[in-house]
Amino acid sequence: MTGARGVQWLLLLPSLLLLALLLGLPLAAMLANSLQPNVLLSFTGPALDNYGYLLSRSYYLQVILRTLRMAAVTTLVTIPLGYIAAMLLRRLSGRAGNLAIMGLTFPILAGPLTVVLGWMALLANGGPFLGPLVAAGLIGPPNLLGSETGVVISLVQFVLPFAVLTLYTGLRQIQPQLHEAARSLGAGSLSGFLHVTLPLSLPSALSASIIVFSLAASSFISPHYLGGAGQLTLTTLVTQFIMATFNAELAAAAAGLLLLLMLAAVIGITAAIGRFIRP
């Protein structure tokens, strides 16, 4: 038994080492830095003044709320959309499935910078997509650029392939015999889904939710280009602190807050979905 334990730690060692060296140490340095005075706030460090400052300004509270809201909405929209797609795709043969997934991933590979250019054109009131609709009077100017909705649309588009890939991989690993068994026992396709497929796919739904939430909350390019300085999220705010006023200390505090919130969100999502996963 001790042998097995030793082996277990040995297998965990590479990941823990990598994590400690490239995340733990920089993170510790960052958190230590977040307790220090800076160009904006003078106090005797180490102290929590930077955190107090951020949490006492309604503008920054709004930024925090916006970050969480956008990530949550993105997750709630993406997971059902991706689940249905994965259900439909899983019946494809290996080669066709490969091509189908490739079709979903190439927009990501081309890079978010290019895709965001496309969104800037497609979401504009007078752009080639919405412009004719607005001009014909079919819709009022939707003002999507610079709005939260615009950012969420592009976030859903960015994370959807990751959700489909995760769910598709999970669904394909459920043994087809189980469906057959359910059917031969007289279960209809809906009850077969509810009692066999859905419970067995919950672990991948949980993974997909956490992946999607994390990607959305930490994304930079969509909020930067489509939301801009008027719709800051914690990532774009942190970038502003670092790039515009070289305030690494306040940036570190904002990043520390994001870390805490994300941790809480991940634990929350795990608890919410995990309750339904049979051990």
Binding site: S15, L16, L19, L22, L23, P26, L27, A29, M30, N33, I210, S214, L215, S218, F220, L234, T235, V238, T239, I242, A248, A251, A252, A255, L258, L259, M262, L263, V266, I267, T270
Partner: peptide, 20 residues
Amino acid sequence: TLLASPLLVPQVVISLAILQ
């Protein structure tokens, strides 16, 4: 959760912290 923690920190900050 521990091993997933890189997802929880803004990468810009980590990038700068690694360099520092």
